[in-house]
Design a protein around this nucleic acid. Structure first.
Lengths: 140, 140
DNA sequence: ATAAACTCCGTACTTTAGTACGGAGTCAAC
DNA sequence: GTTGACTCCGTACTAAAGTACGGAGTTTAT
């Protein structure tokens, strides 16, 4: 409620690092909502929308689709009543996030091993394959 | 060199969890290469290709594009000569992986906080926004 | 040895996530 | 008070990553 004074779509796009068309696209997809109380005929956004767009871009890099990101953004508690519902959905997302972390740690371990094995001639060269890192029971 | 006896494209697709068309698509994109020595006029793949396809699917879930995944798959040391080159590229990928892990950990912390705050009435409800978790200096 | 199932190849279609375009209206700066 | 930049809206186009189709050839199972 402070300084959402003059955030037109162009300025929002700029500070969020996307194009104007992308903002409108996210609006159509229901990821950000059109500001209700407009003075004049142009949109005026609160600053939190910039955070939201940056969140979207980051989450995409982590392998979430826009549909999934929308679900993440809906995880906001407004009243105690809806809490159980939200907690439940949050826990699902949490386990997805943890699965990704686990997989990325395997990939990291594999890459570290690869880098190390170049310095050390004792390590067999062809055993260092990144593609093995997700196989069940894999230990590099 | 063991039992790549009879892995036709259909069987490869099945054990890898994708469709036949997808295998051919990856082949066209250069992610997997067509088996050279064919006996008969059909493709016969070594088993390692199944691992490769499973790697591709996993890596996609972690936000890597096919272009990036191709680069990851090319990180294989064959001789000491190319080692420096590969190490260098592996280190770039490694830092990307570490950045993703860091971001996912922030997201995880944010989701945990959200879940916790539902059990605890003392925590302010509206402060728990997942969308803040990537902002610089964020502490949940 | 013949039918069923599978493979090959090229081409076309689909979905997701944007990007671009263009005419009309609006705002603000000089 | 006009001019230039910005906004609005609908529509169309694009790239990435598949997915489907269909006719012809090949393999295998009976």
């Amino acid at each position: 409620m402070k300084d959402d004074l003059k955030l037109t779509i162009g300025k929002l796009a700029k500070i969020s690092g996307v194009g104007v068309e992308t903002v409108r696209f996210y609006e159509r997809k229901g990821l950000i909502k059109r500001p209700a109380k407009q003075e004049g005929s142009f949109r005026h956004y609160p600053e939190v929308e910039a955070k939201k767009i940056r969140f979207i871009k980051k989450a995409q890099e982590l392998g979430f689709t826009l549909k999934e990101i929308k679900e993440l953004l809906q995880l906001q508690i407004r009243e105690q009543a809806t809490c159980g519902n939200i907690t439940q959905r949050a826990e699902v997302k949490l386990s997805e996030v943890e699965a990704k972390i686990k997989d990325l740690k395997n990939m990291r371990r594999s890459l570290i091993k690869l880098v190390d094995s170049c310095g050390d001639k004792k390590i067999s060269l062809k055993q260092c394959r990144v593609l093995d890192c997700f196989e069940p029971g894999w230990k590099c």
